[in-house]
Protein backbone atom coordinates (compact mmCIF):
# COMPACT_ATOMS: atom_id res chain seq x y z
CA UNK A 1 0.00 0.00 0.00
CA UNK A 2 2.75 2.44 0.96
CA UNK A 3 4.80 1.64 -2.16
CA UNK A 4 1.87 2.20 -4.49
CA UNK A 5 0.96 5.48 -2.83
CA UNK A 6 4.40 6.97 -3.40
CA UNK A 7 4.23 5.94 -7.05
CA UNK A 8 0.91 7.70 -7.52
CA UNK A 9 2.27 10.76 -5.83
CA UNK A 10 5.33 10.95 -8.03
CA UNK A 11 3.83 10.34 -11.43
CA UNK A 12 0.37 11.79 -10.91
CA UNK A 13 -2.86 10.84 -12.57
CA UNK A 14 -1.51 9.42 -15.80
CA UNK A 15 0.27 6.67 -13.93
CA UNK A 16 -2.99 5.48 -12.39
CA UNK A 17 -4.85 5.81 -15.66
CA UNK A 18 -2.58 3.28 -17.35
CA UNK A 19 -4.05 0.58 -15.14
CA UNK A 20 -7.68 1.33 -15.87
CA UNK A 21 -8.00 -1.22 -18.69
CA UNK A 22 -7.47 -3.91 -16.06
CA UNK A 23 -10.62 -2.74 -14.33
CA UNK A 24 -12.87 -2.81 -17.39
CA UNK A 25 -13.94 -6.50 -17.51
CA UNK A 26 -14.65 -6.68 -13.79
CA UNK A 27 -16.22 -3.23 -13.94
CA UNK A 28 -18.70 -4.42 -16.56
CA UNK A 29 -19.61 -7.47 -14.47
CA UNK A 30 -19.87 -5.46 -11.26
CA UNK A 31 -22.12 -2.97 -13.02
CA UNK A 32 -24.36 -5.66 -14.49
CA UNK A 33 -24.89 -7.85 -11.43
CA UNK A 34 -24.28 -5.43 -8.57
CA UNK A 35 -24.68 -1.73 -9.42
CA UNK A 36 -27.54 -2.13 -11.87
CA UNK A 37 -29.59 -4.16 -9.38
CA UNK A 38 -29.08 -1.41 -6.78
CA UNK A 39 -30.34 1.29 -9.14
CA UNK A 40 -33.18 -0.85 -10.40
CA UNK A 41 -34.23 -1.68 -6.83
CA UNK A 42 -34.40 2.01 -6.02
CA UNK A 43 -36.64 2.50 -9.08
CA UNK A 44 -38.86 -0.47 -8.21
CA UNK A 45 -39.29 0.72 -4.64
CA UNK A 46 -41.27 3.71 -5.93
CA UNK A 47 -43.68 1.49 -7.84
CA UNK A 48 -46.81 -0.43 -7.09
CA UNK A 49 -45.49 -3.63 -8.62
CA UNK A 50 -46.92 -7.11 -8.24
CA UNK A 51 -45.68 -9.96 -10.40
CA UNK A 52 -48.31 -10.49 -13.08
CA UNK A 53 -50.09 -7.24 -12.17
CA UNK A 54 -49.97 -3.65 -13.37
CA UNK A 55 -46.95 -1.52 -12.64
CA UNK A 56 -47.80 2.00 -11.52
CA UNK A 57 -45.79 4.77 -9.97
CA UNK A 58 -46.75 5.42 -6.36
CA UNK A 59 -43.94 7.60 -5.07
CA UNK A 60 -43.01 7.02 -1.47
CA UNK A 61 -46.13 4.99 -0.67
CA UNK A 62 -44.12 1.79 -0.12
CA UNK A 63 -41.93 3.56 2.41
CA UNK A 64 -44.94 5.08 4.17
CA UNK A 65 -46.40 1.59 4.36
CA UNK A 66 -43.18 0.29 5.94
CA UNK A 67 -43.41 2.79 8.78
CA UNK A 68 -46.94 1.70 9.69
CA UNK A 69 -46.65 -2.01 8.83
CA UNK A 70 -46.64 -3.85 12.15
CA UNK A 71 -45.36 -7.04 10.60
CA UNK A 72 -42.34 -5.18 9.24
CA UNK A 73 -41.72 -3.25 12.46
CA UNK A 74 -41.83 -6.47 14.47
CA UNK A 75 -39.39 -8.04 12.04
CA UNK A 76 -37.01 -5.13 12.72
CA UNK A 77 -37.35 -5.66 16.48
CA UNK A 78 -36.72 -9.40 16.05
CA UNK A 79 -33.71 -8.73 13.83
CA UNK A 80 -32.22 -6.43 16.46
CA UNK A 81 -32.92 -8.96 19.24
CA UNK A 82 -31.35 -11.74 17.18
CA UNK A 83 -28.40 -9.59 16.12
CA UNK A 84 -27.61 -8.37 19.64
CA UNK A 85 -27.27 -11.94 20.89
CA UNK A 86 -25.69 -13.30 17.71
CA UNK A 87 -22.97 -10.65 18.04
CA UNK A 88 -22.44 -10.77 21.80
CA UNK A 89 -21.88 -14.51 22.24
CA UNK A 90 -19.58 -15.14 19.25
CA UNK A 91 -17.45 -12.10 20.09
CA UNK A 92 -16.98 -13.07 23.76
CA UNK A 93 -16.38 -16.74 22.96
CA UNK A 94 -14.24 -15.84 19.95
CA UNK A 95 -11.90 -13.70 22.05
CA UNK A 96 -11.61 -16.48 24.64
CA UNK A 97 -10.93 -19.02 21.89
CA UNK A 98 -8.31 -16.79 20.30
CA UNK A 99 -6.47 -16.46 23.62
CA UNK A 100 -6.49 -20.28 23.90
CA UNK A 101 -5.33 -20.89 20.34
CA UNK A 102 -2.60 -18.28 20.69
CA UNK A 103 -0.77 -20.61 23.09
CA UNK A 104 1.30 -23.52 21.88
CA UNK A 105 -0.13 -26.92 22.73
CA UNK A 106 -0.03 -30.42 21.26
CA UNK A 107 -2.38 -30.99 18.28
CA UNK A 108 -3.10 -27.27 18.03
CA UNK A 109 -3.33 -27.40 14.23
CA UNK A 110 -5.89 -30.18 14.31
CA UNK A 111 -7.90 -28.52 17.08
CA UNK A 112 -7.98 -25.27 15.12
CA UNK A 113 -9.10 -27.04 11.95
CA UNK A 114 -11.96 -28.72 13.79
CA UNK A 115 -12.84 -25.43 15.41
CA UNK A 116 -13.21 -23.57 12.10
CA UNK A 117 -15.17 -26.40 10.40
CA UNK A 118 -18.61 -25.02 11.41
CA UNK A 119 -17.87 -21.77 9.59
CA UNK A 120 -16.81 -23.45 6.35
CA UNK A 121 -19.40 -26.24 6.22
CA UNK A 122 -22.43 -25.82 3.94
CA UNK A 123 -25.01 -23.95 6.09
CA UNK A 124 -27.94 -25.98 4.79
CA UNK A 125 -26.23 -29.26 5.64
CA UNK A 126 -25.43 -28.30 9.21
CA UNK A 127 -28.85 -26.68 9.67
CA UNK A 128 -30.42 -30.01 8.68
CA UNK A 129 -28.32 -31.86 11.25
CA UNK A 130 -29.26 -29.32 13.95
CA UNK A 131 -32.92 -29.72 12.96
CA UNK A 132 -32.67 -33.44 13.58
CA UNK A 133 -30.83 -32.83 16.86
CA UNK A 134 -33.56 -30.38 17.97
CA UNK A 135 -36.38 -32.86 17.45
CA UNK A 136 -38.49 -32.45 20.63
CA UNK A 137 -39.25 -36.17 21.10
CA UNK A 138 -36.42 -38.03 19.37
CA UNK A 139 -33.65 -35.45 19.26
CA UNK A 140 -30.32 -36.05 20.90
CA UNK A 141 -30.21 -32.60 22.53
CA UNK A 142 -33.34 -33.08 24.62
CA UNK A 143 -32.01 -36.48 25.62
CA UNK A 144 -28.75 -34.90 26.78
CA UNK A 145 -30.63 -32.13 28.63
CA UNK A 146 -32.96 -34.50 30.47
CA UNK A 147 -30.19 -36.95 31.30
CA UNK A 148 -28.40 -34.25 33.29
CA UNK A 149 -31.66 -33.25 34.98
CA UNK A 150 -32.51 -30.18 32.90
CA UNK A 151 -35.98 -29.71 31.42
CA UNK A 152 -36.41 -30.58 27.76
CA UNK A 153 -36.77 -27.62 25.40
CA UNK A 154 -39.17 -27.02 22.54
CA UNK A 155 -36.29 -25.41 20.60
CA UNK A 156 -37.51 -23.91 17.31
CA UNK A 157 -41.07 -25.11 17.86
CA UNK A 158 -41.99 -22.56 20.56
CA UNK A 159 -42.17 -18.77 19.99
CA UNK A 160 -40.18 -18.06 23.16
CA UNK A 161 -37.23 -20.32 22.40
CA UNK A 162 -36.95 -20.11 18.63
CA UNK A 163 -34.69 -17.04 18.45
CA UNK A 164 -32.32 -18.20 21.24
CA UNK A 165 -32.16 -21.55 19.43
CA UNK A 166 -31.19 -19.85 16.16
CA UNK A 167 -28.67 -17.68 18.03
CA UNK A 168 -27.13 -20.86 19.42
CA UNK A 169 -26.60 -22.29 15.93
CA UNK A 170 -25.35 -18.93 14.63
CA UNK A 171 -22.89 -18.72 17.56
CA UNK A 172 -21.72 -22.27 16.89
CA UNK A 173 -21.20 -21.36 13.26
CA UNK A 174 -19.54 -17.94 13.45
CA UNK A 175 -17.48 -17.88 16.67
CA UNK A 176 -14.54 -19.25 14.58
CA UNK A 177 -14.47 -16.15 12.36
CA UNK A 178 -14.16 -13.87 15.39
CA UNK A 179 -11.47 -16.20 16.73
CA UNK A 180 -9.47 -15.99 13.48
CA UNK A 181 -9.61 -12.20 13.30
CA UNK A 182 -8.61 -11.75 16.96
CA UNK A 183 -5.94 -14.43 16.61
CA UNK A 184 -4.49 -12.43 13.73
CA UNK A 185 -4.30 -9.47 16.10
CA UNK A 186 -2.69 -11.49 18.86
CA UNK A 187 -0.04 -12.80 16.48
CA UNK A 188 1.15 -9.27 15.75
CA UNK A 189 1.57 -8.27 19.40
CA UNK A 190 5.01 -7.29 20.74
CA UNK A 191 6.52 -9.40 23.54
CA UNK A 192 8.25 -6.64 25.53
CA UNK A 193 5.26 -5.30 27.51
CA UNK A 194 4.46 -8.81 28.75
CA UNK A 195 8.01 -9.35 29.95
CA UNK A 196 7.92 -6.04 31.78
CA UNK A 197 4.55 -6.83 33.34
CA UNK A 198 5.73 -10.26 34.46
CA UNK A 199 8.79 -8.77 36.12
CA UNK A 200 6.53 -6.25 37.85
CA UNK A 201 4.48 -9.17 39.21
CA UNK A 202 1.29 -8.71 37.18
CA UNK A 203 -1.14 -11.64 37.07
CA UNK A 204 -2.11 -13.21 33.71
CA UNK A 205 -5.51 -11.53 34.00
CA UNK A 206 -3.87 -8.15 34.63
CA UNK A 207 -1.69 -8.44 31.55
CA UNK A 208 -4.68 -9.58 29.47
CA UNK A 209 -6.83 -6.72 30.74
CA UNK A 210 -4.22 -3.96 30.50
CA UNK A 211 -1.94 -5.04 27.64
CA UNK A 212 -3.63 -7.58 25.35
CA UNK A 213 -7.11 -6.10 25.26
CA UNK A 214 -6.08 -2.52 24.38
CA UNK A 215 -3.63 -3.74 21.73
CA UNK A 216 -6.03 -6.09 19.93
CA UNK A 217 -8.97 -3.72 20.37
CA UNK A 218 -8.92 -2.60 16.70
CA UNK A 219 -9.19 -6.25 15.62
CA UNK A 220 -12.02 -6.85 18.04
CA UNK A 221 -13.78 -3.84 16.53
CA UNK A 222 -13.39 -5.30 13.03
CA UNK A 223 -14.76 -8.63 14.24
CA UNK A 224 -17.63 -6.87 15.98
CA UNK A 225 -18.68 -4.96 12.88
CA UNK A 226 -18.35 -7.97 10.56
CA UNK A 227 -20.36 -10.08 12.98
CA UNK A 228 -23.05 -7.39 13.17
CA UNK A 229 -23.39 -7.23 9.39
CA UNK A 230 -23.47 -11.02 9.05
CA UNK A 231 -26.01 -11.41 11.86
CA UNK A 232 -28.29 -8.75 10.36
CA UNK A 233 -28.41 -10.58 7.04
CA UNK A 234 -28.46 -14.12 8.44
CA UNK A 235 -30.89 -16.19 6.42
CA UNK A 236 -29.94 -19.79 5.60
CA UNK A 237 -30.08 -21.02 9.20
CA UNK A 238 -33.45 -19.35 9.83
CA UNK A 239 -34.79 -20.55 6.50
CA UNK A 240 -33.98 -24.20 7.14
CA UNK A 241 -34.43 -24.54 10.90
CA UNK A 242 -37.51 -22.46 11.69
CA UNK A 243 -38.81 -21.12 8.38
CA UNK A 244 -39.63 -17.84 10.13
CA UNK A 245 -41.96 -19.63 12.51
CA UNK A 246 -43.69 -20.72 14.59
CA UNK A 247 -46.16 -18.17 13.25
CA UNK A 248 -43.95 -15.17 12.67
CA UNK A 249 -41.82 -15.66 15.80
CA UNK A 250 -38.50 -15.81 13.95
CA UNK A 251 -39.39 -13.65 10.96
CA UNK A 252 -36.42 -11.31 10.63
CA UNK A 253 -36.12 -8.46 8.12
CA UNK A 254 -34.23 -10.61 5.65
CA UNK A 255 -36.77 -13.42 5.91
CA UNK A 256 -39.70 -11.02 5.51
CA UNK A 257 -37.92 -9.61 2.46
CA UNK A 258 -37.80 -13.11 1.00
CA UNK A 259 -41.52 -13.62 1.67
CA UNK A 260 -42.60 -10.27 0.23
CA UNK A 261 -40.55 -10.81 -2.93
CA UNK A 262 -40.88 -14.49 -3.66
CA UNK A 263 -44.00 -15.67 -1.81
CA UNK A 264 -46.28 -12.62 -2.03
CA UNK A 265 -44.61 -11.32 -5.23
CA UNK A 266 -44.97 -7.76 -3.93
CA UNK A 267 -41.90 -6.51 -5.78
CA UNK A 268 -42.33 -2.79 -5.03
CA UNK A 269 -42.72 -3.29 -1.30
CA UNK A 270 -39.87 -5.83 -1.15
CA UNK A 271 -37.64 -3.31 -2.94
CA UNK A 272 -38.44 -0.69 -0.31
CA UNK A 273 -37.37 -3.18 2.37
CA UNK A 274 -34.14 -3.78 0.43
CA UNK A 275 -33.43 -0.03 0.34
CA UNK A 276 -33.94 0.36 4.10
CA UNK A 277 -31.86 -2.74 4.76
CA UNK A 278 -29.17 -1.43 2.42
CA UNK A 279 -28.96 1.91 4.23
CA UNK A 280 -28.54 0.16 7.59
CA UNK A 281 -25.81 -2.13 6.26
CA UNK A 282 -24.11 0.76 4.46
CA UNK A 283 -23.86 2.77 7.67
CA UNK A 284 -22.33 -0.19 9.47
CA UNK A 285 -19.88 -0.91 6.64
CA UNK A 286 -18.65 2.67 6.78
CA UNK A 287 -17.86 1.93 10.39
CA UNK A 288 -16.06 -1.20 9.20
CA UNK A 289 -14.02 0.72 6.68
CA UNK A 290 -12.82 3.25 9.22
CA UNK A 291 -12.09 0.59 11.85
CA UNK A 292 -10.09 -1.41 9.26
CA UNK A 293 -7.96 1.64 8.56
CA UNK A 294 -7.20 1.90 12.26
CA UNK A 295 -6.40 -1.79 12.56
CA UNK A 296 -3.86 -2.02 9.76
Amino acid sequence: MTVASSATGLRGRNYARQYWPFLVPAGVVVFAVIVFPWIFTLYMSTMEWHVGGNITFNGLANYKRLVSDERFLWSVVRTLYFTAMAVFFPVILGIAAAVCFHKEFPLRGLARTIFIMPMMATPVAIALVWTMMFHPQLGVLNYLLTSVGLPASQWQYAPGTVIPTLVMVETWQWTPLVMLIVLGGLASLPIDPYEAARIDGASPWDSFRHITLPLVWPHIMVALVIRTIDALKSLDIIFVISNGGPGTASETMNYLLYLEAFSFYDIGYASAIVVVFFVIILLISMLLFTSRRQAY
Binding site: L232, L235, N254, F262, F277, I281, L288
Partner: peptide, 15 residues
Protein backbone atom coordinates in the same frame (compact mmCIF):
# COMPACT_ATOMS: atom_id res chain seq x y z
CA UNK B 1 -16.56 -3.92 -0.09
CA UNK B 2 -20.16 -2.73 -0.04
CA UNK B 3 -21.09 -5.46 -2.51
CA UNK B 4 -19.61 -8.02 -0.16
CA UNK B 5 -21.63 -6.87 2.85
CA UNK B 6 -25.02 -6.35 1.21
CA UNK B 7 -27.44 -9.24 1.69
CA UNK B 8 -27.44 -11.59 -1.30
CA UNK B 9 -31.21 -11.56 -1.34
CA UNK B 10 -31.25 -7.87 -2.30
CA UNK B 11 -29.71 -8.68 -5.70
CA UNK B 12 -32.19 -11.43 -6.36
CA UNK B 13 -35.31 -9.33 -6.89
CA UNK B 14 -33.99 -7.28 -9.83
CA UNK B 15 -31.92 -10.13 -11.26
Amino acid sequence: MIARVTPGLSYLVPL
